[in-house]
């Protein structure tokens, strides 16, 4: 287990606490961006760090809407 792994796991725990308070969209976007950054080796790529997490959150948000699953909405969204 290295520092990246510990940061990844701890941030997931923080995400679980934040989900109800901050809201699904913002907290999930944040955790996916963090995962992407932790997964990259040297220089950060815009596509990996920002575009993919945003697109994925949009996809899963639409899926939840289609499945009529109530999305956790916090103070933001």
């Amino acid at each position: 287990m290295n520092v990246r792994g510990i940061v990844g796991i701890l941030s997931t725990v923080v995400y679980l606490f934040a989900l109800r308070r901050v809201g699904f969209v913002v907290s999930t976007t944040a955790i996916l961006i963090l995962y992407s950054i932790l997964l990259q080796n040297r220089r950060l790529r815009l596509l990996d760090s920002l575009v993919v997490p945003l697109v994925m959150v949009a996809v899963v948000y639409l899926m939840l809407l289609l499945l009529r699953v109530p999305v956790a909405s916090g103070i933001l969204f």
Binding site: L19, F24, Y35, Q40, D48, V52, P70, A72
Partner: peptide, 22 residues
């Protein structure tokens, strides 16, 4: 770094969608 966030997004959302509980 492109694939794993996709897996993470489906894992987290899937677990949430089962019963909408954290």
């Amino acid at each position: 770094s492109l694939l794993i966030p996709i897996i993470a997004a489906f894992s987290l959302t899937g677990m949430y969608a089962i019963a909408t509980t954290v």
